[in-house]
Design a protein around this nucleic acid. Structure first.
Length: 236
DNA sequence: AATTTAGGCAACCGCCTGATG
DNA sequence: GCATCAGGCGGTTGCCTAAAT
C-alpha cells in the first residue's frame, strides 16, 4: 500500500482565516461538496491543510450554524448533558442543533464551569425506592440500564459513599452495546441504613434521550451527580 | 491616555478509531 | 494481520478586545 504522506505542512498557512479564504472555501464546498478534506485545499486553491479547512467549515462557515448567545434552554441542556456525558462535546452538540462542539466546549469553559464551581452542592435524600441489600462490597444494581457498580470503597454508615468503576450494559436504547464509565471522586448519595449492595427494580428506557433524562433525574435526586466523565466508551 | 489584566473564542495539536490497501 | 491514512474528537494555546487600574 502506498499513500502520500498526510499533512504536508511546508508552505501551508496557519492562523486566522481571511474573508477571502472563507469565500474560496464556501464557494468550493457549495459547488463540489467537501468529499476528501485532504485533497480539498489543493483543488480549491487554498494554502491550508485539509484539517484546517474541515475545522473552519464545521465550526464557522457551515450554513446551518446558529451563532450568538446561548439561550437559557440551551444552557440547561448543556449542563444536563454534561452531567451525564462528561466532556463529550460532540455528543452534546448533537443534541443542540446549530451549535458546534467547539462552541459548546468554549461556552462551558468560559461560563458554565465557573458558574457550577460557585454553586454549593446540596445533598438530599436518595429516592425511597432504593432498597437495601446486605453485601458490604460489590455490585450495586440501579434501575436502568442494568447498572453494575463495582464499589471499590463502601460504607456501612448512614451515608452511601463509593468510588469505582461503573459498568453498564444497555439492552435497549443503546442497541445492546456495553458501556464503561468511571465514577470520579465518589458518589455520595445520602441514604439511610447500610448502603452497599442494592438491587433495584426495573426501569427501562426506549431511547437515549429518555435514558439520559432518567440518569440525570436519578443522580440529581440523589443529591450529587456522580462525575461520570470523559470516556463513556464502548467496550463491547 | 496609557498600560495591565481578564474573558472570550478561533484555531491548532496530538491522539484515537475505522477504513483501506 | 499489519501499516498507513483520513476523519473526528477533546485539550490547549494564543490572539483579540473590553474592562480595570
Amino acid at each position: 500500500m502506498t499513500r502520500t504522506p498526510c499533512c504536508e505542512k511546508m508552505g501551508l498557512k496557519k492562523g486566522p482565516w481571511t474573508p477571502e479564504e472563507d469565500q474560496i472555501l464556501i464557494s468550493y464546498i457549495q459547488r463540489y461538496g467537501h468529499g476528501n478534506w485532504r485533497a480539498l485545499p489543493k483543488q480549491a486553491g487554498l494554502l491550508r491543510c485539509g484539517k484546517s479547512c474541515r475545522l473552519r467549515w464545521i465550526n464557522y462557515l457551515r450554513p446551518d450554524i446558529k451563532r450568538g448567545k446561548f439561550s437559557k434552554e440551551e444552557e440547561e441542556t448543556i449542563l444536563k448533558l454534561h452531567q451525564i456525558l462528561g466532556n463529550r462535546w460532540s455528543a452534546i452538540a448533537a443534541r443542540l442543533p446549530g451549535r458546534t462542539d467547539n462552541e459548546i466546549k468554549n461556552f462551558w469553559h468560559t461560563h458554565l464551569k465557573k458558574r457550577l464551581e460557585r454553586c454549593e452542592v446540596r445533598k438530599v435524600s436518595a429516592p425511597s425506592s432504593w432498597t437495601q441489600a446486605s453485601s458490604s462490597k460489590g455490585v450495586v444494581m440501579l434501575p436502568m440500564p442494568q447498572l453494575a457498580v463495582a464499589a471499590s470503597e463502601s460504607s456501612s454508615s448512614a451515608d452511601l459513599g463509593f468510588t469505582g468503576k461503573v459498568l453498564m450494559s444497555a439492552n435497549e436504547g443503546l442497541a445492546s452495546r456495553k458501556y464503561a464509565a468511571t465514577v470520579d471522586s465518589g458518589f455520595h448519595g445520602a441514604h439511610s441504613g447500610d448502603a452497599s449492595g442494592e438491587t433495584l427494580g426495573g426501569h427501562r428506557s426506549n431511547n437515549i434521550s429518555e435514558e439520559m433524562e432518567f440518569w440525570y433525574d436519578l443522580f440529581m435526586k440523589a443529591g450529587q451527580p456522580p462525575q461520570v466523565h470523559a470516556n463513556l466508551g464502548q467496550i463491547a
